[in-house]
């Protein structure tokens, strides 16, 4: 009798699992539906996209791959991609260097300046960019005339992200780096600078990975700040170029879809390669923030 009950329960659980799996599959298809539609239509000619957006292969002109080379040429893909890559990589490296160093001195000393800057950084994390954009354009565009340089954007990205990164590094230093280790380094004759680079920094690896992933994704996808700083065409990053492209070729849907897919591709490839780290980084970053 008891075994029969068990078998019944097991069967019910099995059925529940199948139902859940089906619900999940439907939701999953809904989630990737926009990407599927984009992929479906990017290989069609414009006439087919307009008349038959749901067809697998364009009924009139058939399978077409010309949208990609056309879009790449029109949006200057490699130049734009290069700009995005230079800016993302440099700003990420600077953020990692500067915030790691800052968190070391801030966490290990109870000086007034350290407490003050740390408090300011934490408080500043709630300030949205929209509150700062107008004065930034006014100061750096109007008075100092520093717009339209990649370096300006790189340093600004860094300035915006150091607070969060310093906060995460300092948490990691507090919990993961024993003071005895630094004392041992001091006795062995290390300066504070050497102690940081040779002893502390190598132990901060996981935090460095998390910060790098969160910031690199944010820099790569950012639109508003770059669009205010870089107004010259040859400095455009991928999001700006996409937006401009959409404005000028709104009727050439095939080309636009190709441009959108090209804009997504680098980060999707990165995600496929580093999925585990990205998921971990994004959640732990959010939990700490």
């Amino acid at each position: 009798m008891y075994e029969l009950e068990n078998a019944k329960a097991a069967r019910r659980r099995k059925i529940m699992n199948v139902i859940m799996w089906v619900v999940l599959l439907i939701l999953f298809i809904l989630f990737i539906f926009p990407f599927l539609i984009a992929l479906l239509n990017v290989f069609k000619a414009n006439a087919d996209i307009n008349r038959f957006p749901l067809a697998l292969i364009g009924p009139r002109k058939g399978f077409v791959t010309s949208n990609f080379p056309t879009a790449m040429e029109k949006m200057h893909f490699w130049r734009v991609f290069g700009n995005s890559a230079i800016i993302t990589v440099s700003a990420t490296i600077l953020t990692l260097l500067f915030s790691g160093m800052a968190s070391f001195v801030i966490t290990r000393n109870n000086w007034v300046a350290c407490r003050l800057i740390f408090a300011l950084m934490i408080a500043s994390m709630v300030i949205p960019f929209q509150v700062l954009m107008i004065p930034i354009v006014s100061i750096y565009g109007g008075t100092l005339n520093l717009l339209n340089h990649r370096l300006t954007l790189i340093l600004m990205h860094t300035g915006f992200s150091v607070s969060m990164a310093t906060f995460m590094y300092s948490g990691s230093i507090k919990t993961n780096i024993p003071l005895e280790l630094e004392e041992a380094a001091l006795i062995d004759g290390c300066t504070r600078w050497q102690t940081y680079w040779k002893v502390v920094y190598p132990l901060l690896g996981p935090t460095t990975a998390t910060v790098a992933i969160i910031d690199a994704m944010a820099f790569w996808n950012d639109y508003l700040l770059p669009s205010l700083i870089l107004t010259k065409q040859d400095l455009y990053t991928i999001p700006i170029a996409t937006q401009m492209f959409y404005g000028s070729y709104a009727s050439d849907m095939g080309c636009i879809l190709a441009a959108l897919i090209l804009a997504m591709l680098p980060i999707l490839i990165l995600y496929l390669v580093m999925q585990k780290y990205i998921v971990e980084g994004v959640t732990s970053g959010a939990v700490k923030g």
Partner: peptide, 20 residues
């Protein structure tokens, strides 16, 4: 302080505190 936190402080103040 300047050696370790100088760059971060300058950039942070330049884009957050001063504009605010």
């Amino acid at each position: 302080y300047l050696m370790f936190a100088g760059p971060a402080t300058v950039l942070f103040c330049a884009v957050v505190i001063i504009p605010l």
